[in-house]
Simulated scan of single mutants.
Amino acid sequence: MNLGDLMKDYEIYSTMKVPKNSKIILRLDGRKFHSLARALKLSKPYDDRFYKIIANVCIDIFNQFSPKFIYAFSDEISILLDEIPFSARVEKINSVFSSIASSSFTYHLLNDYSSEFNLDKLSDNDRNIVFPISFDSRIIPIDDESIAKYFKWRQDEAWRNCINGYGIWALKKEYGTKEANEKIKGLNSNEIHDLLFERGINLNDIDTWKKRGIGIYKKSWEIEGFNPVKGEKTVSTRSEVYVDYELEIFNREFFNNLK
């Protein structure tokens, strides 16, 4: 046995694979994005620029792998795959998807928003916090019956983030950060709703994507034309990658209708 073959024996996880004939959800999470948010001075409670970057990351992933559906909120991205790449190798899937997300986020931050975030004026300390940008990745095997439940679970978490984010943001206007965080602890959703309403903030009026996240999927539509040779109308189908900022509350029918 040569040295190369001997060393490959140490790669004990390289043959680990996703179960055959299964769907998977790949969940990516930004690493240390709370620190990144502080270094970039992201607007609170939501920064439109940040979410546009996340949307572009999702589009880049979609264009590479044509998943069934991608859902994102905060720095979390869930990718539904029914065709599993890389011969279903776990190491390969996790490493490639997380690296694409990291490089895509870096690319769009530097090329689309460098001046808006004043990246050239970052202190050395903040630059070390922001770069390198990285995502971690985990694989979740899932059956058809559980897909809607999974995404509803994550969408509920997006809603909780929204309520808490607005609650802390509102209280920080009146109190210090530590006191605002203490006051929000233990409050249920209705109590935070009331707290915000007393301060002129109605969560029913804020953007849907802040409450429910964003979805990326293929959207199709029909185009009518005319065939001059046959002298008759024609109908063709077009499709494109669509970013949905007005998601409905997830249910099984939503996922049954995905192309």
Results as ranks from 00 to 15, higher is better:
residue 107 Y to Q: 03
residue 112 D to Y: 10
residue 139 I to N: 12
residue 139 I to R: 14
residue 91 E to T: 06
residue 102 S to I: 00
residue 125 N to H: 14
residue 99 S to P: 02
residue 154 R to T: 06
residue 116 E to P: 02
residue 120 D to C: 02
residue 99 S to C: 02
residue 135 F to H: 08
residue 113 Y to V: 00
residue 146 S to K: 14
residue 145 E to Y: 13
residue 104 S to L: 00
residue 130 V to I: 14
residue 120 D to W: 13
residue 138 R to Q: 11
residue 104 S to C: 00
residue 155 Q to M: 07
residue 99 S to H: 05
residue 94 N to L: 15
residue 95 S to E: 13
residue 117 F to A: 04
residue 119 L to A: 03
residue 147 I to P: 03
residue 113 Y to I: 03
residue 133 I to F: 03
residue 142 I to V: 08
residue 98 S to Y: 01
residue 146 S to F: 11
residue 101 A to L: 06
residue 114 S to I: 03
residue 102 S to A: 14
residue 121 K to M: 13
residue 121 K to I: 11
residue 109 L to D: 09
residue 96 V to W: 11
residue 109 L to S: 04
residue 139 I to E: 15
residue 126 D to I: 08
residue 143 D to K: 13
residue 140 I to C: 10
residue 141 P to Y: 09
residue 144 D to Q: 09
residue 121 K to A: 07
residue 170 A to S: 12
residue 170 A to M: 13
residue 161 N to D: 15
residue 127 R to E: 15
residue 165 G to M: 09
residue 149 K to Q: 13
residue 149 K to R: 12
residue 152 K to P: 07
residue 101 A to P: 06
residue 102 S to M: 02
residue 141 P to K: 04
residue 125 N to G: 07
residue 112 D to F: 06
residue 156 D to I: 08
residue 94 N to C: 14
residue 104 S to Q: 04
residue 141 P to N: 03
residue 154 R to D: 09
residue 126 D to H: 09
residue 135 F to M: 12
residue 132 P to S: 02
residue 140 I to E: 08
residue 100 I to F: 06
residue 147 I to S: 03
residue 109 L to W: 01
residue 98 S to W: 10
residue 100 I to G: 07
residue 114 S to Q: 07
residue 168 I to Y: 14
residue 107 Y to K: 15
residue 154 R to S: 00
residue 159 W to T: 11
residue 108 H to Y: 12
residue 170 A to T: 11
residue 110 L to E: 15
residue 133 I to W: 00
residue 91 E to M: 03
residue 135 F to K: 09
residue 125 N to D: 14
residue 168 I to K: 14
residue 145 E to R: 05
residue 131 F to P: 01
residue 121 K to G: 05
residue 104 S to K: 01
residue 95 S to G: 10
residue 140 I to H: 06
residue 129 I to G: 05
residue 141 P to F: 04
residue 108 H to T: 09
residue 137 S to I: 13
residue 166 Y to M: 01
residue 111 N to K: 15
residue 115 S to W: 11
residue 153 W to Q: 11
residue 105 F to M: 09
residue 93 I to P: 03
